[in-house]
Amino acid sequence: MHGSADSSEYVLDTLDRQLLNRLQDGFPICERPYLAVANEFSISEDELIARIQNLLAANYLTRFGPMYHAERMGGGLSLAAMSIPPEQFEQVNHIVNSLPEIAHNYERDHTLNMWFVIATEEKEDVDAVVRKIQALTGHPVYNMPKIEEYYVGLRFAV
């Protein structure tokens, strides 16, 4: 799943970019939140909704909704890595990504070359996912849950 697969079909215009920046800072909680944001840009509520639909359809967004604090929601979250020989990479990657608890997965240039985020509904389930991956792949998983969070801005100027 390459993130940019569909986005090349739909080219962002200036207003799209402004909306992407604005909506990374939050969305109002009121009776007509789309209207409130639309008014900031002097566009109609319908146009704002249509633009968000287009951005979702063109795969520019991972979601339009809540960014949860996983641990406070009772969920489990961890970063884990594996060292996989190149000739086995595709196969192991396929196994790992088939698990619904895997939220992100990247190949990185290091001996530990497969890095993924495990997100579970229950905090205790992370260890079970780690054991399952080890059993399914025969390779050790280096589980590195966060100890402290210093910054989670994750905002991208578009």
């Binding site: 800072d25 969305f27 520019y60 604090h69 991208f156």
Partner: peptide
């Protein structure tokens, strides 16, 4: 929803950009 935001269960509402798609 206001309560969840205030308690930090939800960090924010809004959109999450697919960063690769916007050039990062």
């Amino acid at each position: 929803l206001e309560q969840w935001l205030q308690d930090g269960y939800i960090k924010r509402l809004g959109l999450v950009v697919r960063h690769h798609a916007v050039g990062y």
